[in-house]
């Protein structure tokens, strides 16, 4: 049970996540995103093995963002005609403002929860393979993504090496703030030049192994079965329940 979300077909999961986000965009009451957020966290709790400590850490900036929305809406939002609930200093908080503030900030949380669910339960390589097998993504495009995924750690080491080498040269004769910014350009140009060289080598290596971008067989079959549709149903249920908040609030 705890592996279900990880094993779900990644293309279908992606479709479900995108559909949820699009649907949520049409609901402007605070209850829909709140219920959706709670529902998604519950689903993730039940059907995945998530490192919740890491999850909270990644969630933190979104929570700050949500609070930012909440506060700025209260301070700068349109007051409307509704009754004034409180007055804090110069700020009059009307019922409409209050609702808008909650709605906006909960929306941020709802969107981030569903995005994190996808990020925490999806292996990027499997996702690309699935897009190739179910989504008919062209192998050329798919493998360029896969190979850049392999290059990220290499580029990171290269960037660190460049930074270290430049630290040795010092800030130059007269370091000014402007010079510091242009120094970044000096890091980026050799880094990009190196990346282009590496990309060419990788392309050669792939062609040398008979990669042409034409049709191919697949070693790891990414299946699409009943379980996947059942999970899709569950996402739809969470979405439908949250959206139904329109009728009972």
């Amino acid at each position: 049970m705890r592996r279900l979300l990880h094993e779900m077909n990644p293309s279908l999961k992606f479709l479900a996540v995108t559909a949820c986000m699009l649907a949520l965009a049409f609901f402007f009451n605070p209850w829909t995103p709140l219920m959706f957020f709670l529902g998604i966290v519950l689903v993730q709790l039940l059907f995945s093995q998530t490192n919740w400590k890491l999850w909270s850490l990644v969630m933190l900036p979104f929570v700050f963002g949500a609070f930012g929305y909440f506060w700025t809406t209260l301070v700068f939002g349109e007051s409307g005609d509704g009754p004034v609930l409180w007055t804090i200093g110069m700020i009059e908080i009307t019922a409409q403002k209050w609702e808008h503030a909650w709605s906006l900030s909960l929306r941020v949380l709802a969107f981030s929860s569903i995005s994190l669910l996808f990020a925490f339960t999806t292996d990027p390589v499997r996702f690309i393979q699935s897009l190739m097998q179910q989504g008919k993504l062209s192998p050329k495009l798919a493998f360029s993504v896969l190979i850049s995924y392999q290059f990220l750690p290499v580029l990171k080491t290269e960037f660190e090496q460049l930074q270290q080498a430049h630290r040795l040269r010092g800030p130059g004769a007269k370091p000014t703030p402007f010079k510091r910014i242009t120094a970044l350009r000096r890091l980026l140009i050799p880094l990009l030049a190196g990346a282009v060289r590496k990309a060419e080598r990788a392309a050669f290596a792939m062609e040398a192994r008979a990669f042409t971008g034409a049709a191919r067989s697949h070693y790891r079959e990414i299946k699409l079965g009943h379980k996947d549709y059942a999970l899709l149903g569950m996402f739809s249920l969470v979405l439908a329940l949250s959206c139904s908040a329109v009728f009972w609030t």
């Binding site: 390589v125 493998f143 896969l146 190979i147 392999q150 290059f151 290499v154 590496k198 080598r201 990788a202 290596a205 792939m206 192994r209 008979a210 990669f211 042409t212 191919r216 067989s217 697949h218 070693y219 790891r220």
Partner: peptide, 19 residues
């Protein structure tokens, strides 16, 4: 460093066969 496109040895071998 720049002749592999998959994470593991098995998948890299399979890449050739898939081609």
């Amino acid at each position: 460093d720049s002749q592999f496109c998959m994470p593991t040895v098995e998948e890299e071998l399979a890449f050739t066969l898939e081609n």
